[in-house]
Amino acid sequence: MFITGCARSVTVLSDFPEPVVEPLPLAIGIRYPAELAEYVHVEDPMMDAEWTIRLGEANMKMFRVLFASMFDEIVELEGTAAGEGAEGVDAIIEPRLEELEFTVPRQSGNDQYTVWLRYNLRILSPEGKLIGDWRITAYGQEDEGSMGTGAEDSMKEAAITALRDVAASIIIGFTSAPGVQTLLPPKQAPENDQAG
C-alpha cells in the first residue's frame, strides 16, 4: 500500500511547433504502429518510486507535425501489411520507439530529471521492401522542482524536450539517413542536411 501511494504517473501531453523547414519533394506513406500510439513505460528504479510514463499521444502529435512539414505529401497508412495502401507514394516510414530510459535526481546526484529516447525509423519501398533502418537517440533534461515538488512536471518537461530533440535529429539527419538518398531527386542528394 505504501509503495502504491508513492507511485508517480506522468501522461506527456504537448503541442509541438511547426518546424521551419522546406519540405522535400516526396510523397511519403507513414505507418504508425499501435505500440507507438499507446506507448507506456513502467519502471521501478532504485532509490525512487515506481514511475509510469505515458508517451503515446505526444509521440503521435510530434510525428504528425514533423512529417507534415518535412514532405510535400503525407499519407497515413492504416493496414499492417508491408505495402498495403501505399500506391502512389515514394516510400513508407514506420517510426518505432524502441527504448525509454530516465534518471531522477536521487540516482544521478544532480538536480536534473533526464530522459533518453531511442527510436527506429524503418524506411520501406512502396512495395514494402526495407531500404533503410535508422536509429535515432534523443535526450532531454529539466531542473528539479523547488523543495522536491513537481517531480512529475519535471519528468514531463524532460520528455517533451527529448521529443523535440527527436524532431530536430530527424530534420537535420534525414537526407543522409540509410537509404534515403536513393529517394531524393538529384539536386537534394548531395546535401548532408535537410534543406531547412
Binding site: F16, P17, E18, P19, V20, T161, R164, D165, A167, A168, S169, I171, I172
Partner: peptide, 12 residues
C-alpha cells in the same frame, strides 16, 4: 524557440 523550431534546440 517555437517560432524558429528546431533551430534553437540544444542539439541545433
Amino acid at each position: 524557440k517555437d517560432a524558429l523550431f528546431p533551430w534553437l534546440e540544444p542539439r541545433t
